[in-house]
Amino acid sequence: MNTEESTAPTAPEPIAPGLTAQRVQLSRAGRLIVDGIDITAPDGAVTALLGPNGAGKSTLLQLIAGVLSPDHGDLLFAGTDLRRLRRRERARTLALVEQEWSDVDGLTVRELVDMGRMPHQGWLAPASTVDEVIVDDALHRAGAASLALRPADSLSGGERQRVNIARALAQQPQLLLCDEPTNHLDVHAQLSSLGLLRSLAHDGMTVIAALHDLNHAARFADHVVVLADGIVRAAGRPGDVLTAQCLREVWRVDAEVLEHNGHPLIVFAAPIPAATATH
């Protein structure tokens, strides 16, 4: 029924949940990196950011997280302007799982994950029993409990990824941002990590993950956003967006898109020479 034609009283619309980015723009050295992007990431869902290298996926995550500041645009989460949040309040709201490590010399894995509790603690306050339980749960859920006593600088790339996720979970964010969360992981660990993101979204968290593997996005994401050259080329349900035409135009590959257990399954054929690609 068209609500505009109804004479029945209607309740005010609630503030839109999840993340909304409006007209977000960032330039570097005179070059547009992110060009007026508008996206939404639904609450309680996994949104996959997709696109070829250099599309702007990592930059967009850093803009949302506050690592970078946009030249223009609005970034709203649950109706709150993320740019107006103080650093501690922002850290209570969102967590960013990046691909690279910061300086971890001398820290054990447990101590590194403990740092995720800092936004929730008083200045110089020792960890409480509640903090310890939360850290234990974060290590367990990320598959990193067996690494707790290891020196953080001794870990492999895959182990580091799991610890990065654990530290983010210890923050107890409402919005989780992941930049290539399956990077360096073997197949079992990749599927476990993506399953964890699905579980977190099911529990109500808003999850945004930049992914390279399109079949992972098709299987685990509720919503996908395709970026290319700093702009949004398509957005929506994986089955509606990840079409053979989209793959040809954005990734310059020929592929057949099948259906498997209710999800798209992409079978790649061959790359398309740049001279013949459709733009």
Rank of each mutant, 00 (worst) to 15 (best):
V226F: 02
L197F: 12
A217S: 11
L214A: 03
H202E: 14
D240K: 14
V224G: 04
N261P: 00
G195S: 15
R198W: 02
D229A: 14
G239H: 14
G230S: 08
S193R: 00
R252M: 11
L247V: 12
D179Y: 01
A221H: 04
S192H: 11
S199L: 10
E249D: 15
R219G: 08
A255T: 13
E256P: 00
N215Q: 12
V250M: 04
N183L: 05
G239R: 14
Q190A: 07
T182S: 06
E256K: 01
M205E: 07
L200N: 11
A189L: 04
V241Q: 11
V257Q: 13
T182F: 03
A201W: 01
A209F: 01
H216V: 07
E249W: 06
H223D: 11
L247K: 08
L247Y: 08
V232G: 03
V250F: 01
R198G: 08
H216W: 01
E259K: 00
H223T: 09
G236K: 12
I208T: 02
A235K: 12
L175D: 02
W251E: 08
E256M: 11
T206W: 03
N261C: 08
N215S: 10
G204I: 11
S193F: 03
R237V: 14
D213F: 02
H260P: 00
T182L: 02
N215V: 09
F220W: 11
V241S: 10
D254I: 10
D203S: 13
C246A: 14
V250L: 04
L176C: 00
A234N: 13
G239W: 13
A210M: 02
H263L: 07
S199M: 10
L194I: 11
T243Q: 10
L191R: 10
S199R: 14
Q245I: 11
S192K: 12
E180S: 07
L175T: 00
A217C: 08
R233T: 05
H223V: 06
Q190Y: 01
L258I: 12
E249R: 13
H212Y: 08
